[in-house]
Design a binder for these strands. Structure first.
Lengths: 194, 194
DNA sequence: TTAAAATCTGACTTGACATTCAAAGTCAGA
DNA sequence: TCTGACTTTGAATGTCAAGTCAGATTTTAA
């Protein structure tokens, strides 16, 4: 990649970050392209130089986040760990993502209210992929007898729902660190499976 | 109440219902006053005859729903039941509300992105009240030894989060009836406390 | 140094709503 | 039947944010 391309990519990355951050703060509909630009001391016009429109910017941002989370999850999947520890780790990683990225995206807005066509398909696909991985973790645990038999689908919804919802109530002012919090939530949720 | 007042109240009720229904369908920001009116074969002008503005309409609708849920919860609280059965019933009732009203209990938007001032305060107050009631149920169970000791606040967030999230994924096409679904979710969540 | 390429700017256009309002329509009861 | 209060209508208005674009400015590389 040429220097120029690197610079452009860096700028795009900054803009994506800014977008995610402002959206996490104010919600998708309340954040304007000017907000996103202002945060970087730019003007709207510049943002449009890098991104076709708001939808594309948000799509790319969201996609990247999902892909990164997916990759982390895959890494956990690949580890040599007993089922319980593996699922536990996956949950902790997820919680940390939810809290640090504050991506209200999993709950705030339904994807079909923001994306269309290809973009919508891709986002749904990535989400399903993620969800499937979690399912696999539960499945494995049930097969090797680490977990009790449960309705995988429902339990998965419960687990992801409980975790994603933290965006709404988490506050850095709380007495627990993110790590502690992630761990205790993971422990509580694991009790459903033990 | 005079005949006319009854008629007005009935109309307002219809409009609130329509608003909640369209919002559940398309999301708060995507639903226009015309959508809400059209569903009742009215024009938006009429809606404005009954409600000052969109915010007020949604506020009143949402408030009523919260109050109704609160009342149901209070009724459960008042019943003579062992802790486990009581919390279980509260959860089932909540789930049924979430699914039938399809208002994620909360519009899918954080309240401070919709309401302001007094209205916002009142909505937050009602939510807290509701949450406190759930807390009380957990507290009681821990005190009488029915539940293990847990961090009440976190567990409460988990429980409400997991349940509210059902708005996102519930589909009437699923094989389980609402009642079955509510029951199995309640059972899974109770395992956290047993 | 300098001209072409890449970036950036901000005023402008557009369109989608929310909200208003004057006029028209409805209806219970005198 | 008539009247006046109550309702409804839909066109007009106001607002706000997305998206555009003709330059202005900065960077690149010869």
């Amino acid at each position: 990649m040429s220097l120029r391309e690197k610079k452009v990519e860096k700028k795009k990355e900054e803009i994506r970050k800014s977008a995610m951050s402002v959206i996490a703060e104010k919600g998708y509909h309340a954040t304007t392209m000017e907000d996103i630009a202002a945060k970087l001391l730019m003007t709207k016009g510049s943002v449009y130089y890098y991104f076709k429109d708001k939808e594309s910017l948000v799509y790319e941002s969201h996609k990247l986040l999902l892909e990164q989370s997916m990759e982390q999850l895959q890494n956990v999947l690949a580890e040599e760990l007993p089922s319980v520890a593996k699922l536990r780790k996956a949950m902790v990683v997820h919680m940390e993502n939810v809290i640090t990225e504050r991506t209200d995206f999993f709950i705030g807005v339904k994807p079909d209210q923001v994306f269309e066509g290809e973009h919508l398909q891709e986002i749904l696909h990535l989400r399903n992929q993620y969800s499937d991985c979690m399912n696999r973790l539960i499945q494995q645990g049930m097969e090797d007898g680490s977990f009790v038999q449960v309705d995988m689908k429902i339990v998965n919804y419960i687990i992801l729902g409980a975790m994603n919802n933290a965006v709404i109530w988490y506050s850095p002012k709380g007495s627990k660190s993110i790590e502690e919090l992630a761990n205790s939530i993971a422990d509580y949720l694991l009790k459903i499976l033990l």
